[in-house]
Computed example of a mutant assay.
Amino acid sequence: MPANLEHIQQIMAEADTLFSTEEVEAAIDRVAEQINQKLFDSNPVVFCVMNGGLIFSGKLLTKLTFPLEQSYLHASRYRNETSGGELFWKAKPEVSFMDREVLIIDDILDEGHTLTAIVDFCKRAGASKVHTAVLMDKQHERKARPDLKADFVGLYCEDRYIFGYGMDYKGYWRNAAGIYAVKGM
């Protein structure tokens, strides 16, 4: 059942702007520059984590100046539940990355359970090295592992319910041009 449209519109109307479009685009440029320096001669396979990573990945890929193979994967730990369980693959990687470097692009590093599981899967499946790039890194103490960090981070944000640039509020506002926090959350 679709969300109440009036409620969804109210969420945006009342949202706090955390990062403007210009700030997000500048962060994507910085991440691209870092990746270009690090992976320029590695012939990586680059995976976009669906659905959240789609916008960040699309913007980022056009700024990478080296040869790469691009694909996507779709994994979830939630499967319509409120708490995560075992990793469920909605679409497994279809491009071979055996003995190759892999770059995983995702929207946000929150607690990191899914990203950790994807990285572990790629390592077990034969990737020579796995790198991670996220648009947002949410700052809190609930990370899956205390040492969990993405290799490339666009922006850091406070521990709030955020949306925009691929991140959603109940399936909506992934298309918001900026990064917003739900009022009071």
Rank of each mutant, 00 (worst) to 15 (best):
V24D: 00
M167N: 07
L5F: 15
L73T: 04
D29T: 14
A181W: 00
G178E: 02
L135W: 10
D16K: 15
G52R: 07
N51H: 15
R160N: 10
G84N: 04
R124G: 05
K170L: 03
V130W: 02
V31I: 10
N36L: 11
C48N: 06
T21V: 13
E22K: 10
K59A: 13
P67L: 10
N43G: 09
M12E: 06
H131Q: 09
Q70S: 12
R77L: 01
V134I: 10
V46T: 07
L109A: 06
F40G: 10
H131R: 12
L18D: 00
K138Q: 01
A15L: 03
A150S: 06
P146C: 10
G126M: 06
S128N: 05
V182Y: 03
T62A: 13
I118C: 03
E111W: 06
E111S: 10
L135P: 06
F66W: 09
K129F: 07
I105P: 01
D159S: 09
D107Y: 03
N36G: 08
R160D: 03
Q10N: 14
P2C: 10
A15C: 06
P93L: 06
K183Y: 00
P2A: 14
E81N: 07
F97I: 04
S128M: 04
A150F: 01
E158Q: 13
S83Q: 12
M98A: 14
M12K: 15
P93H: 10
E86G: 05
A91D: 09
A91Y: 12
F40L: 11
H7A: 11
M185S: 14
F88K: 14
D107P: 02
I162N: 00
T62V: 12
D110G: 01
A144P: 01
P93D: 05
L54E: 10
N36S: 07
V153R: 13
E141I: 08
V31S: 03
A75D: 02
T65C: 08
G164A: 08
S128W: 04
M136V: 12
T62G: 12
A177Q: 12
F163S: 07
H7F: 11
I162Q: 02
A125W: 13
A27D: 00
K59E: 14
Q9Y: 12
M1H: 12
I162T: 05
E111M: 06
M185R: 15
E94N: 14
M98V: 15
D159L: 10
V182T: 05
M136G: 04
M136F: 15
A15W: 06
Y72L: 11
N4F: 11
K129V: 06
G178N: 08
Y78F: 09
N36W: 12
D41A: 09
Y161G: 14
K170E: 03
W173E: 00
M12P: 07
